[in-house]
Design a protein around this nucleic acid. Structure first.
Length: 481
RNA sequence: GGGUCGGUAGCUCAAUCGGUAGAGCAGUGGCCUUUUAAGCCAUUGGUUCCGGGUUCGAGUCCCGGCCGGCCUACCA
């Protein structure tokens, strides 16, 4: 037997175990402790500790003649074990030496401290509980090939500590989002992902077919219209965390399926949502990340403490273009100005879209510190209430952090006639389907409410300082291999 | 979709002007009872992403394809 095929070598080991009547895939082991918990059982000033029983995957293996060190990885982290031939016996040590990196084993024994100070289990007993037939990626560099990281995420999670910690962080973030809303008496609900009409956002949906009813369905593109039906139904504080699907391109900031949080609170408005959103993110950063100051790979850290900046959309635009009368200019003059500023703008765009291009291309990426952008032009959102003092703008904000839109919030439109009219204007654009059933619901009366939506993946990007949305999604969408 | 860069051993990476495909880790055999990317000696392992072409000769040059990264486009 040579080392030419590592899988064959391992299969051969497995075969030999079975010939000896040993089961390489046990049904169980008493995982009485996880590694970090076990480490905590040996007080700082002591050399010997209690007996523990742990289990995990072998991720480091240092064999010496008659004694060995190994590290196992479990859900909480890693712990080292020390295995001596004179303690577990000659036969046991011989089979121990045949274990491979990647195998799952159980270990039982007392804790002690090595001469370098590391808390270690002195094995009295070990057992192979599950054999690994394929080798692990290289131990020092880990797995760096992006494609393999995404397609075989389990390998990434085994060998890349950063990645493992980031996904733990994501889970904590979502847990704390729930805690926050529960503490404010919101009801968590689930609404349909399969919809006859997908509305609530201007995005192309994924289409599918329901055989039993012989009709076409779409995957949802937003949670909004169903959550508002629940406001009509009397659940006057609701939230949902769930997947939405948009049939659009992939990018560093876009995955076709992503996780959205939406929350609606009756008898509140966009100002109330501002307080809620800021408190939510501060709560999550504090509890899940442990700090309100978020370091970034480059540039100044993001400071989440205190009261966040508010800025009017128009002021930001005027400031960016350096021209007080921007909103009085003809479209052609705006296009000309854009060209001077070196911004490429499609001349076919509507007037307000040209302005919004300036926002997206010049301003958005500069908003690193949390900023509520308010008084957004009414054309940009058909589901919000119009500002009383300025009918050209809406009672909404768009929260930008880390140079990205993170969360829009509105004083929600609850006048069915105004809502229908706004929908009709947009329905020509094909991206927003008219949802008659939703309008019927509004006609039954919806309490005034503030609503907020947040892209969880983007929140996780900046809270965990990830480079890419794909580093925050366990199994990002890829072309089938 | 467009531009651009890449795909070499299980993993991380080399390979000069087109001239015998290499190293580290992992594996295999041996030595080694407190190691920390353990160490020392020996050693196995290749459809160089796939298919064509140019050439005496292609990992390297050309054409096409597949997959991916980045940028861009689409994107409330």
């Amino acid at each position: 037997m040579d080392g030419s095929d590592q899988v064959a070598v391992r299969q051969d080991k497995l075969l030999r175990m079975r010939e000896e009547g040993l089961d390489p895939f046990l049904t169980n082991w008493d995982q009485a402790h996880v590694s970090t918990e076990a480490i905590g059982l040996l007080p700082e000033d002591e050399e010997q500790g209690p007996e523990v029983s742990v289990a995990g995957r072998i991720v480091a293996f240092r064999l010496m003649g008659k004694a060995s060190f190994l590290k196992i990885l479990d859900r909480s982290g890693k712990i080292q074990s020390y295995v001596r031939r004179d303690e577990i016996g000659e036969d046991q040590y011989a089979s121990f030496k045949k274990l491979d990196l990647g195998d799952f084993i159980g270990i039982r024994g007392p804790l002690f401290r090595t001469k370098t100070g590391e808390v270690t289990i002195r094995a009295k007993e070990y057992k192979l509980v599950s054999k690994a037939l394929r080798p692990l990626p290289e131990k020092w560099h880990g797995l760096t090939d992006n494609e393999q990281i995404y397609r075989q995420r389990y390998l990434d999670l085994i060998v890349n500590d950063d990645s493992r910690n980031r996904f733990r962080g994501r889970s904590q973030i979502i847990r704390e989002i729930r805690e926050f809303f529960w503490s404010r008496d919101f009801l968590e609900v689930e609404t349909p992902m399969l919809q006859a009409v997908s509305g609530g956002a201007a995005a192309r949906p994924f289409r599918t077919h329901f055989n039993a009813l012989d009709c076409d369905f779409s995957m949802r593109i937003a949670l909004e219209l169903h959550l508002k039906r629940l406001l009509v139904g009397g659940f006057d504080r609701v939230f949902e965390v769930g997947r939405v699907f948009r049939n659009e391109g992939l990018s560093r900031r876009h995955n076709p399926e992503f996780t959205m949080l939406e929350a609606y609170q009756a008898y509140s408005d966009y100002r109330g949502m501002m307080e809620l959103t800021q408190s939510l993110i501060q709560h999550v950063a504090d509890k899940a990340i442990g700090s309100l100051t978020i370091e970034r790979t480059e540039g100044e850290p993001i400071e989440l403490a205190g009261q966040w900046r508010e800025a009017k959309y128009k002021d930001l635009i005027i400031d960016a273009v350096g021209q007080e009368d921007w909103f009085n200019l003809e479209k052609n003059e705006k296009l000309k100005k854009c060209k001077e500023m070196g911004i490429e703008v499609d001349p076919e765009l509507e007037d307000f879209e040209v302005t919004n291009d300036v926002f997206e291309k010049v301003i958005e990426h500069t908003l690193i510190q949390p900023t509520f952008v308010t008084h957004i032009p009414r054309e940009l959102c058909p589901l919000a209430k119009i500002t009383e003092s300025d009918p050209s703008t809406l009672d909404v904000f768009e929260l930008c952090i880390n140079g990205q839109e993170i969360a829009p919030a509105y004083s929600e439109q609850n006048d069915p006639d105004v809502q229908r009219e706004a929908f009709m204007i947009q329905s020509g654009e094909e991206t927003q389907e008219l949802d008659e059933d939703f309008l019927t619901a509004l006609e039954h009366g919806m309490p005034p409410a503030g609503g907020m939506g947040m892209g969880i993946d983007r929140l996780v990007i900046f809270l965990t300082n990830a480079a890419n949305i794909r580093d925050t999604i366990l199994f990002p969408t890829l072309r089938p291999s």
